[in-house]
């Protein structure tokens, strides 16, 4: 055997990132249950809202057109939440120490989780939209508007995935990470995702109008259904950028702090 060098060769510029992306893809593909749940749950919610609540909310039968943007965001939330658990898993098993004692950029392992989450959730989004079309969703979007829809959804997935990754770093166990993540999944219900904000009590209206989900929903709705856009697109992109920047900074800080503490 050749055991004479005793020094690792230097690795290519993006070898670590691509290796970790491959790893996270393998994790995603093998965790069939999580992937399935991340698609099945939002689809079930959509069917429930369309067929059970839908006619009560909007007797004209057009509720499916209203609810699809919300379901898309809900789906992205469910799908990204598993990132928190994956990251927490890495942090609590010894594997992170092995990576940390190698000459790698420290964030590379997180990049792997984030890229895999983005790919996974874009596929899930496409499935949700297909099912929506089957149950009567009739969008009026042009190809360019569809592109914008997927662009914004991708940006939102990135934002919430980075946030979940930071939560995974902050949590002491994978189970706790799962719990914290659940709180975030309530946000769509406090927005214009399922009912117009005007129907809520005053104090709740204030929350609903000033949280990130509402402008994103309104932008998607405008792109898909041609409702008025207003300035919601700016708010939507702004919120996503702020969340990404904040989560990356928080995550990097947590990563360094955990490295020094033990």
């Amino acid at each position: 055997m050749t055991t004479t060098t005793l020094v690792r060769p230097r690795i290519g510029a993006f070898t670590a990132e691509s290796t970790f992306i491959t790893r996270s893809f393998l994790h995603s593909v093998r965790d069939v249950e999580s992937a399935l749940m991340a698609i099945v749950l939002p689809v079930m919610l959509m069917l429930m809202f369309t067929w059970i609540f839908g006619n009560a909310i909007d007797p004209s039968g057009g509720y499916v057109d209203y609810v699809v943007p919300g379901i898309i965001l809900l789906c992205a939330g469910f799908g990204s939440a598993s990132t928190a658990v994956s990251v927490a898993n890495d942090m609590t098993t010894g594997i992170i120490d092995r990576f940390r004692t190698m000459p790698l950029r420290s964030g590379a392992v997180l990049t792997g989780h984030v890229v895999a989450s983005l790919a996974r959730n874009l596929v899930a989004t496409a499935v949700v939209i297909l099912v929506a079309l089957l149950v009567g969703f009739r969008p009026t979007a042009t190809p360019l508007e569809w592109l914008a829809v997927f662009g914004l959804v991708a940006l939102w997935i990135l934002a919430i995935t980075y946030l979940f990754a930071a939560i995974g770093l902050a949590a002491s166990t994978p189970e706790a990470a799962n719990g914290y993540g659940f709180i975030l999944l309530f946000l769509p219900y406090l927005s214009s995702a399922f009912v117009p904000v005007e129907t809520m009590p005053d104090w709740l209206q204030w929350i609903a109008e000033n949280q990130p989900i509402t402008p994103i929903i309104e932008t998607l709705r405008s792109l898909l259904m041609g409702t008025p856009m207003g300035d919601s697109a700016w708010w939507a992109v702004g919120w996503c950028v702020v969340i990404i920047a904040g989560s990356v900074a928080w995550g990097a800080w947590l990563f360094r702090r955990k490295a020094g503490r033990r």
Binding site: R8, P9, I11, T19, D31, G94, I95, R98, M102
Partner: peptide, 30 residues
């Protein structure tokens, strides 16, 4: 670049196969 650590808890990826674990670490080692 010159050390390896085998810590107290086995630092292996339980989702990957034995070969995949080793290939991953090989790629990360250059």
């Amino acid at each position: 670049r010159r050390i390896s650590l085998t810590g107290q808890s086995a630092a292996v990826d339980g989702v990957l196969t034995g070969t995949e674990n080793l290939v991953m670490m090989g790629r990360l080692s250059g």
